[in-house]
Design a protein around this nucleic acid. Structure first.
Lengths: 269, 269
DNA sequence: CTCCTGAATTGATCTGCATCAATTCGGTAG
DNA sequence: CTACCGAATTGATGCAGATCAATTCAGGAG
């Protein structure tokens, strides 16, 4: 494994704060692996033997039931996934599939669990990571239960904008049908939702979306810091309280709500 | 605080495995408090200063946006809530409101975070707890995105049955309008969903539901261990992998999916 | 270049669920 | 007991989003 990759792993909030020894224990037996696009990395119900660290490519997490399927999250580098299952040594609740060619570090779950027992700092890091994941899902549930599909799309676009550069052009990172499933709608409906947003200055051209009237779009979307992790807070500078972690499944990922920003600990920076 | 209550707190998976010293540190400054029904314990957006341990009564966690409100979870004793916010020292993403008279132990967040730094076993316990909460939410999202309202209700009833006694009579623990919001529908629609389930042998009489044809109900509901935490697994006895924790926000709670069982570590026991 | 295939769009229609409105039910205070 | 009030139910109607079907579009192979 290249030193460059090792540094990237070390830089994750999950690992950045721990002792060198702990890091060695935690990543003992880890191996880098490459997968072609469309590979099933993990099937829901399977025992989870590894913590996955996505170093390159895109991975989709999805769930199925009764012949239906829904995308739960889309991950982009660098992020870890299925930490919760690893911590509990439990079966996966989600399937993982590569959307494109991927480079993934596979860290044995045993090593992670051992390291947690050794170094309280690592236990704290894992806890903080999982807490961030949990809160990401809370946001997702609120997003889905409180908003309709056009509102979800509008917020997704604003989140992308915030993550990218806050400019007036935004690039979609996934196929529209995948995005549709992520946002909880059909591809047909996503198309129509995009049309509906033309009235608010949003125009799609393939993967490129131009936002000509951000104010109008925001008036519709009403982004909320308690749902959309990128949304601005009211009030003054926040303290440590603001340091919510997006290291794992949601970091850099246009995750469930698509609301998560790229930065692990930015926000009001 | 009564010794009896202290024992109940100590018995939570979050605390059961840690050293006495750690427990002392973690619960330093904790105080027991009583609240009448309908009290707002916490407003979303507020800083979270305490870990709450519900010892008696019922608490509802809900979220709001744009004048809409949705119930995210209903908690019953003994369970903790907003651990994630405490770990991150972050603002609450959900509001908490007592549904009835409640008795709650309020543990200062600082104490929790300090204890995590001291005792790796506590860090592990917190991680496991949060991992369980996270997985509960994954189940919830799958439940909502993959099932329609009648299917959700049917599974909710089967989950209640599994938690209670697996008999043919089940008691609803909450007002129907609260249950409706939890399941992501309107009260009117919940009524109609109950009517629809008459064809599957389910009859409601106030808070009492009789299930005369569990087989038919199951054929409709198709409970799945990867969504419904009570559902039977296929295959052989499970190992440690099976010990998913439902200590916190979901323990004994007819939580989001209503799928969580009463036992912390039962399942296949 | 053309052809081919899957993605995306567009239109027509259907349906699950929400909404609005009107009773009915059930628990509580007097 | 009766009166009252919020919860629950039931009915009528509307709408968001799913489904079905038909093009259109875009990318990759030959």
């Amino acid at each position: 494994m290249r030193a460059y990759d090792m540094d990237r792993v070390r830089g994750l909030p999950l690992f950045s704060d721990i002792a060198p020894d702990t890091f060695r224990v935690a990543t003992a037996g880890a191996h880098l692996q490459r997968f072609p696009a469309g590979t099933m990395l993990l099937l829901e119900g399977d025992p989870v033997d590894f913590l996955y660290v996505l170093l390159d490519g895109q991975v989709e997490l999805h769930g199925t039931w009764n012949d239906r399927e829904t995308v739960l999250a889309i991950l982009r580098p660098v992020s870890t996934f299925i930490l919760a299952a690893v911590v509990l040594n439990a079966d996966a609740l989600m399937s993982a599939r590569t959307l494109e060619r991927c480079e993934i570090l596979m860290v044995p779950g045993d090593a992670i669990r051992t390291a947690m027992r050794l170094d309280p700092r690592f236990g704290v890091a894992v806890s903080r990571d999982l807490a961030g994941c949990y809160r990401g899902l809370v946001r997702t549930v609120k997003n889905h239960k409180l908003r309709n599909s056009v509102e979800r799309l509008a917020n997704y676009l604003l989140a992308l904008r915030a993550a990218d550069n806050s400019g007036s052009v935004v690039r979609l990172h996934h196929e529209k049908r995948v995005l549709a499933s992520l946002l909880g709608m059909t591809p047909e409906n996503l198309s129509r939702a995009f049309s509906a947003l033309q009235a608010y200055g949003a125009n799609v051209q393939g993967a490129i979306v131009t936002l000509d009237n951000v104010a109008a779009l925001e008036a519709l979307a009403k982004p909320d810091p308690l749902i959309d992790n990128h949304a601005p807070r009211g009030g003054e500078i926040m303290a440590e309280a603001d340091a919510e972690i997006w290291s794992s499944e949601w970091n850099r990922a246009a995750a469930l709500t698509g609301a998560q920003t790229a930065a692990g600990v930015k926000r009001n920076a």
